[in-house]
Design a protein around this nucleic acid. Sequence first.
DNA 1: GTTCTGACA
DNA 2: TGTCAGAA
Length: 154
Amino acid sequence: MQSNNSIGLGTDKDTPLYTIGVVAQLLEVSVHTLRLYENEGLVIPFKKDSNHRLYSANDITRLKCIRDSITNKKFSIASIKTLYAMIPCWSIRNCSEGERENCEAYNSTMNPCWTFKHSNNLCALQECRTCDVYKEHNHCDNIKETIKNNTRQA
DNA sequence: GTTCTGACA
DNA sequence: TGTCAGAA
């Protein structure tokens, strides 16, 4: 018997395993809503060659956070985007002054860094889905921790 | 049967 | 957010 999963790969919370239909049932939202969250840049599911989406356990954790924010805390999608946009990616990735000046993400207040192209900076080298700036905030609560760690005293 | 994209209510 | 169309 395989203890991990049906395809026998060593699995962890980052392994994309769940189809959009399964996730929709799990979170009690429509498939359409999950695609909306993706289009709005709230979540980045893995895409198979077939272009079908696969979600990991961490993606589901993230989606639960998003749902809780919207349903219980009355956040809008736009407000969640703004919150994500406040994550100091430039600090986490140690971007230079020059890189910051030329970076759309650094200068955006409305959109998370992972919604930009990143064709001409160090972010072009890594998939946002696997970047700490994105990954470390699957729990919405972690944003506060990040801000704490990046705040200097005057 | 499930999911994809795009469009419209 | 829901639903429908046409395709894979």
